[in-house]
Structure formats: structure tokens, C-alpha cells
Amino acid sequence: MIDQTSVRVASTDPALHPALPPALPKQPDFLTAPLTFTSSRRVINDFLTWFGDLGIFFWQVAHAAVTPPFEFHELFLQLDNIGSKSLPLVALAGAATGVVLSLEARYSLTRFGAKSLLPAAIVFSVIHETGPIITGLVVSGRVGAGIGAELASMKVTEQIDAIEASAVNPYRLLAATRILACILMLPLLTLAADLSGLFMGWVTQALVEPLSLHQFISSGFKSATFNDFLPPTFKTAVFGLIIGLVACFQGMRTEGGAAGVGRAATSSVVLSSLFVILADVVLVKLILIFFP
């Protein structure tokens, strides 16, 4: 079995140090480091590096997403994971928000003698802001942590390398499908949050004084237009992009075993929630400008 080939002796360099495993990449310091004067420069540097890496990651995913072969099977799985399985939680959060909003609005409007505006106040509050932002934050928590932990676990156990070694593009299979599912599902989940919020808002009012659902809806939507409904609902597609992108990015760059998986899950939730709130500030202003 053993082939008799000639011996080749290669010189070894005694100046070399013994090779060690590659150093672990650092987690973004802006998440953990206390902001002191001396460390601020390094934190800013880390923050900019993180953003640069995120931009490169986004480009790789976008390129993979628009080039065949398309991973429809995985996309449908993720639509179910991210959409259907988030529905009960989002609907519950929307319902709770509807109840609180209804109670608070009743108290405030009665105090200022504007009780007749109660249905409209609830409808406008829910569809304009509370429905979309509650959906964004709930999905950041549930889906952001799930994607971050799942991909991080796959990364540290070399499963993502195994996908790549099987000649399958992991950006296409893992990241593009999850991000696209988040983008598609957030507006639909927002609708569910809006509906459950409005319904529970009406129930809360109807328990205090007689008010039919028909009266509540016709009064609430009397002066509402599509501009009040469509832009705030579709802005959550941007929230979906943020949640999917940040969670996939944090998951797929993880190093460092179980601790790394935990850090990836936490940072996915923290960063995606933060960016959803910041994006909301910008999007609300843009909607007010373009859809007055």
C-alpha cells in the first residue's frame, strides 16, 4: 500500500513560534465596555468596524438573494417559523396594548371633555404607532433571539462551514431566507396586532358603557384614509429587514462556544430592538412628509 517515493526534507525555521489557534474576534465593545474618556476612541472604532462589516454582510446576502438557485423550501419554512409561530404572541401583545390604550385614552379624553373622540383616538393610535412598534419589538425579542442563537450554534459547531463545504451558499440558504421572511411577515403580523388591539380597545369601552362594534368602527375610521393605514403598516417591512439582518449577522459571526451563542442571542435582541426604535423615528418623520 505504501508507495516508495523519494524523501523530501524541508527545513524548519527555528525562529518560528509554535502555532496557536486563531485569536477569537472580539464582540463589539460598544455593547459591553463602559464609556470612559480613554476607551471612547476604541469604542467608536469598534462601532464603525461593526457597521462596515454589517454593510459587507448585507451586500453578500443581497447578492446571494437575487442570484439563482433560489431556496424556496427554506423560505417557506422560515415564513412559518417567523410568521405563524409569532402570531399568538403578537396578537396578545396587540390586545394588551389595545386595552391599556383604551383605558388611558378614556381617562384623558373624559378629563378634557373630548370623550366622543375616543374611538378615533384608539384607532389612530393603534394603526399609526402602537401596532407597528409593538410588533417590531415583540418580533425583535422572539425572532431576533431565535435566529441569533440558532445561527450562532450552527457556526460554533461548524455546521455553517459544512454547508459551505457542500457547495451551498450559506448567505443564500440561511441569511437571505430568514431576512426575506422577516420582511414579508412583519406587515402581516402588524395587521394582526392592529386587529387584536382595536378589538380589545372596543371590548374595554363596551364594558364601561354600551357601544356596538359597528358604532366603534364607523366612528373610529370616519376620518381615516389609506394614508393613515398603509404607510405605517408597510414601514414594518423595514423593521423586518433590520431584525433579520442584525440577527443573521450576529449569529453568523459568532465565535467562542456556548458563551458566544449566548452573546449572539443577547446582542441580536438588544441591537435589533434599538435599531427598530431608531428606524421608527426616521420613518415616522418620512411618512409625515410624504403621506401628509
Binding site: T5, S6, L16
Partner: peptide, 14 residues
Amino acid sequence: LNQGSVVIEGSFEE
């Protein structure tokens, strides 16, 4: 391999 270089290459007997 040792310290990043090939020290020797051949059959087991070699």
C-alpha cells in the same frame, strides 16, 4: 508538519 513547515514527506519506511 512542524511549526508550519513540512519536515519530511515520504513513505512510512522512509
